[in-house]
Write a protein that binds this DNA or RNA. Structure first.
Lengths: 146, 146
DNA sequence: TCTTGTTGGTTACAAAAGCAACCAGTACTA
DNA sequence: TAGTACTGGTTGCTTTTGTAACCAACAAGA
């Protein structure tokens, strides 16, 4: 019996919090649109930032390129997204939201905003600021030198 | 282009932070002991709380029972853990750390404590308190009524 | 004590993630 | 303009996870 407390260990605690807060939202994009987490992430990037290539999404989201590749394929099958070749660099596939994808995005953004404010509801303004700020710094932690 | 910002969306942000903060530590338990995340979680519960059954670990960690079952099997194969049948209820398997598991635990606790303080290093005392408190509340969110 | 329901735990099968190899296309540079 | 090295992206194979079905063992009531 050791006094190390898992409940103060950030990687563990963050993981628990991430899982708990994701469940309800994931049920919605899964039930309504048959999407996976990787798929809504791609969708959200395109909806939020406009046309992008897979590797740009990768840089922002830090998802591995195979995940993105498969998510894009699934979104194409759903007619949510289309891909056209870049005129300059022919390796690049520029991804664009199609009307159906746009409307799923609009729908899910509303859900996400509601869900987010539910999650934040218990916190004071000051707590929210600190929480978001700390999380953003932690999310960038691995980019720091060892 | 919508103004919804993924970077303020808690489920996303928490996930990013969780992944980033887990990488270094996971490399260590993987490299040194060939363990998976599920395995170190079980190990840490036993090391921290003493003998437990699989379902007690499940209640605390919220891991699904199949994950625990497989993690326990892997830990038994490594001679980190042993299981004996409860004298009372013969369904229950009481899990105990073996010397090798104990020493891996001791080693990893040190690593985890160091890693945790590295992660916290950038935060003020006030920030730490708020962060941990908010995360613990978020981790319990799904237990709340809808 | 039968019978119905529950709980602890495992297993088998399907879905998803991780990893490495690969195929273009580009970029450098000799 | 050939050679080498890199980048964007896909595919195939392996490892992990999720899900549901299942097998004991227990519990509670008729």
């Amino acid at each position: 019996m050791h006094d190390f407390d898992l409940r103060n260990f950030l990687p563990y605690l963050l993981n628990q919090a991430a899982e708990e807060t994701s469940i309800r939202f994931s049920r919605i994009y899964k039930d309504r649109y048959g999407m996976l987490r990787t798929e809504w992430r791609v969708l959200f990037h395109l909806g939020r930032y406009g046309d992008m290539t897979a590797s740009e999404i990768g840089r922002l989201s830090k998802m591995h390129k195979t995940k993105i590749s498969r998510a894009v394929k699934a979104l194409e099958n759903k007619n949510f997204v289309t891909r056209r070749e870049s005129s300059g660099d022919r390796r690049l596939g520029i991804l664009t939201l199609l009307p159906q994808g746009r409307s799923a995005f609009d729908d899910l953004v509303e859900v996400a905003e509601k869900h987010n404010s539910d999650l934040m509801a218990g916190f004071s303004t000051g707590e929210r600021t600190v929480l978001i700020d700390c999380l953003q710094r932690l999310a960038a932690f691995e980019d720091l030198p060892d």
